[in-house]
Design a protein around this nucleic acid. Structure first.
Lengths: 193, 193
DNA sequence: GATATATTGAAACATTCATTTCAAAAAAGA
DNA sequence: TCTTTTTTGAAATGAATGTTTCAATATATC
């Protein structure tokens, strides 16, 4: 039929995500995206629609990729409590490295756009619900196994862990001391142990 | 000597802060600031220097004001543990109201600018150290009174509470259910009780 | 009241912004 | 190879960006 896209779509989206991550949504210009992806402006508009739509594409990309990290942590853990611990600990390398200064992509998005863009807000809520469900599932399982206490119901604990997890992603922006971070994890998990 | 400023400086800074809070630093234009403060462009540049310097002024203003809230919570509490609880709970009204969607001013700043502006990063670190010191002081006091346990040293607990506090400010952007928020607080305080 | 000094108002500044335009280039199916 | 369809390149779009300019205005001190 017709000419094909010359570029690698996934690679372009990843490069775009990295710029948005570094500079934020409003801090990123179309020129930044052109430079980072190596694509022509026309190609970006032709393939992704607009700056905002490209940003939303990076959100989906991020969700898929971080979902993979979650999944990996679950597979490597020997029990649900260990899985939750691994979820936290899997971010330690990124936090301690320099790129940890950029914070969490989803957290930055929430901070900058939750009250500005209705459809992005909806994505954030769905993403939050998804994370809560994962924690909830693990906790429920852990409670059935007697590894996690049952003083509170699983949903309540899921919110508590979720809260600490978000704090962890924010704390990691300025705190790089592994021991300090590790103690935060330990004390957090103490509640549900 | 010469002509005096016509406007109320504190009021102008507060209005500027509210715009930055609503739209973020990069999302706020000079025109937005002119509209919100009611000042002329010249007056803003003459009195505050630049957009960035005005933003930094609002950061100082925020620190002073939220420091006052902290102080108030400490006075109203009957013991150090209650003070920490009040620090969390004092944000509940703001979170549950619509304006809670804007999140925490300092958290938004960290998310958007910690990795972009060196001097703002320094302010954030100082601000963080200050908050940690307050928590640390309360916890140490509570441990001496036997109200807070001594399984971990005060600094470790201070980081834990600080972490949960940051999570709390982020969670509050999308979670408006008072009971859910209250349970997060309760479970957090459970660690140090 | 004259003088010196600072704040204002309105317009202009060059630059950057996101987006559009359109002809040239390319490739799959006929 | 010709046709059809889409992508690509480069330039142009108008609006918005942060900041500067400068004359007009206002006031505390002399």
């Amino acid at each position: 039929m017709a000419r094909l896209e010359e570029f690698n779509r996934e690679h372009a989206v990843r490069q775009a995500m990295n710029v948005f991550w570094e500079k934020g949504y409003n801090g990123t210009s179309m020129q930044d995206l052109v430079d980072a992806t190596g694509l022509n402006r026309s190609s970006i508009y032709n393939s992704f629609g607009s700056k905002k739509e490209l940003y939303q594409t990076t959100l989906e990309f991020y969700q898929k990729e971080s979902g993979g990290l979650f999944h990996k942590a679950l597979l490597n853990a020997k029990d649900p409590l260990g899985a939750i611990r691994l979820v936290f600990e899997s971010f330690l390398p990124q936090i301690i490295s320099e790129e940890g200064d950029r914070g969490c992509y989803a957290m930055n998005c929430k901070s900058e756009l939750a009250n500005q863009e209705e459809d992005i807000r909806k994505w954030l809520i769905a993403n939050q619900e998804n994370t809560l469900d994962i924690f909830n599932g693990l906790i429920k399982e852990g409670q059935e196994q007697g590894i996690i206490n049952s003083k509170e119901d699983s949903r309540t604990y899921a919110y508590f862990i979720f809260n600490a997890f978000q704090g962890f992603r924010m704390t990691g922006i300025l705190v790089k001391d592994r021991k300090v971070l590790q103690r935060i994890i330990n004390n957090t998990l103490e509640v549900i142990s």
